[in-house]
């Protein structure tokens, strides 16, 4: 076994090692002066830290809990209202509904805007008329209109 790592040293002093690991450390420190000194220092620090004693008795928290528990309701099976109002289900559904409404509204606006843009584009640009040229989309539109008329006639 090599020299003891810091984490292993802490675990050794705090009693957090398995018996076999503990034996290995003990064997090593009996042979390695440096690690033996480190173990002594850590053990001393551990003891000094133990001097900070705290007396937690006399605070009667359990007595208060006993008194309060008499007034508390027994934990019971949850009702649908608990899930809806306490688990954030209602706010979540409101958020989802709002998102859908906003998405539909924005989609509708975008649709209107794109139709208006398309209609504006259908008007022949001025530079074409100044050159006495027909605008292809206008031709296409009339061609389509003719097709529709013919289609209507067939009916």
């Amino acid at each position: 076994m090599g020299c003891i790592g810091d984490t292993e040293l802490i675990a050794y002093i705090s009693g957090g090692l398995t018996q076999s690991a503990r034996d290995a450390v003990q064997k090593h420190i009996s042979e390695c002066e440096g690690c033996g000194r480190r173990v002594e220092e850590m053990a001393e620090l551990w003891d000094v830290l133990g001097e900070w004693g705290v007396e937690a008795g006399g605070h009667e928290v359990a007595d208060r809990i006993e008194a309060v528990s008499a007034t508390l309701e027994r934990p019971t099976e949850r009702k649908w209202r608990d899930y809806v109002f306490r688990e954030g289900v209602l706010p979540a559904s409101i958020r989802i509904a709002s998102s859908i409404i906003i998405a539909v509204g924005v989609g509708n606006r975008l649709g209107e805007w794109s139709i208006k843009k398309a209609q504006a584009a259908e008007e022949a640009p001025e530079y074409l008329s100044s050159l006495r040229l027909e605008w292809s989309s206008g031709v296409t539109q009339s061609a389509l209109a003719d097709t529709n008329i013919e289609g209507d006639k067939e009916k």
Binding site: A56, G57, H59, V61, A62, E66, S69, T76
Partner: peptide, 15 residues
Amino acid sequence: GEMSALEQLARRHED
């Protein structure tokens, strides 16, 4: 629903 269990837990872990 056994409320005395809460008191026991409190006594056990309070300190």
